[in-house]
């Protein structure tokens, strides 16, 4: 038995662990994707699955994103709970028809005759210098589609708890695993750990400014909050954890206390999910605000390769700190 107090449990371990726990409890859960079997995933997020569950439940596919997600849909409609891996979230564009037209609409347009209980997992986001076609944060693509649930965890424990909820969900879920978080570690949650979809987490309490973050931007925001505490600014940080369902109740209730809002998102400002969060706040929380709302988001450019250039266009601790500082001085 591993000594859990000393064990290093990484975000990438958590992905495999979250899947394995569900595969153990439900024989209808199966995995398919490129290099996920004996190779254990290009990001090592499926380590141990092939060994434990074998080729009957962990299926290597060709490089065929439409076949992967389309087959997952057909299987989900007929009694299975498939987990399809799309290696990089940029590649979702290769099978976007399934995410935009097929999976989210099948239940609605058949008058409720079918359900599509599947998970599409994908490695999302920048920070690793993979360049323009392997680095985008594209959670806003999915956010534009009614009918998809969207999960983007920030910690290993949340990966496990949200993976359980995503796999058990009778609705289709797109599960974004952030590449820059894969090597980070945290605590291994107890067996049975489950986090209901659509429940944001207040990861740091504060009184002056509310920061709404997701996945990679949660740790940036926490670092910014630490720095600003030394300047006497008290920052509350909310980890949304899911984009759909979107926990606006937690956001609005926080703004009741702080009266100030910064949204930190890695996807582009143009069409980013923060725009919707802000529009709900403007509509329903206008009178709670004492200052304009700030969005720290990806720039409206493709992701550049060089680290120094990439840092220019994605959120950084410095950009978040600056935004909070300005807002608290307003």
């Amino acid at each position: 038995m591993a000594d859990v107090t000393k064990e290093k449990f990484t975000y990438r371990d958590a992905v495999a662990e979250g899947i394995a726990r569900e595969m153990r409890r439900d024989p209808s859960v199966v995995c398919l994707g490129e290099d996920i079997g004996a190779a254990e995933g290009v990001f090592k997020t499926t380590v141990g699955l092939f060994k434990e569950f074998g080729p009957a439940r962990v299926w290597d596919t060709p490089i065929s994103e439409q076949a992967i997600v389309g087959a997952a849909m057909g299987a989900a409609m007929t009694g299975m709970r498939p987990i399809a891996e799309i290696m990089f979230s940029d590649f979702l564009a290769c099978c976007w028809d399934y995410l935009a037209n097929e999976i989210p609409k099948a239940r609605y347009m058949t008058g409720g005759q079918v359900t599509v209980p599947l998970v599409v997992r994908t490695a999302n986001g920048g920070g690793l210098g993979f360049g323009a076609q392997h680095s985008q944060a594209v959670e806003n693509w999915a956010f534009a589609i009614p009918g998809l649930k969207i999960v983007a965890p920030s910690t290993p424990s949340d990966v496990v708890g949200l993976m359980a909820a995503a796999i058990r969900s009778d609705d289709p879920v797109v599960f974004f695993e952030h590449k820059a978080l894969l090597a980070g570690s945290g605590t291994r949650p107890p067996e049975g750990h489950l986090i209901e979809l659509g429940q944001a987490s207040v990861v740091r309490e504060g009184t002056d400014v509310t920061v709404v973050a997701l996945a990679s931007t949660v740790s940036l925001s926490l670092k910014a909050a630490d720095q600003l505490a030394g300047e006497g600014i008290s920052v509350e940080v909310i980890d949304l954890r899911c984009l759909i369902p979107l926990d606006m109740r937690t956001v609005l209730s926080s703004i009741e206390r702080t009266s100030r809002l910064v949204v930190v998102e890695e996807n582009p400002y143009q069409g980013g999910w923060g725009g919707t969060v802000v529009s709900v706040v403007a509509d329903e929380g206008f009178e709670l605000l004492d200052a304009p709302i700030k969005r720290v988001a990806g720039a409206n450019v493709p992701l550049p390769f060089a680290d120094s250039l990439e840092a220019e266009v994605i959120p950084t601790v410095g950009k978040v700190t600056e935004a909070i500082r300005r807002l608290s001085a307003y």
Partner: peptide, 12 residues
């Protein structure tokens, strides 16, 4: 679009 779905139902 439905050809991969049929393959998936057959896989199931």
């Amino acid at each position: 679009a439905h050809l991969p779905m049929a393959a998936g139902a057959a896989w199931s």
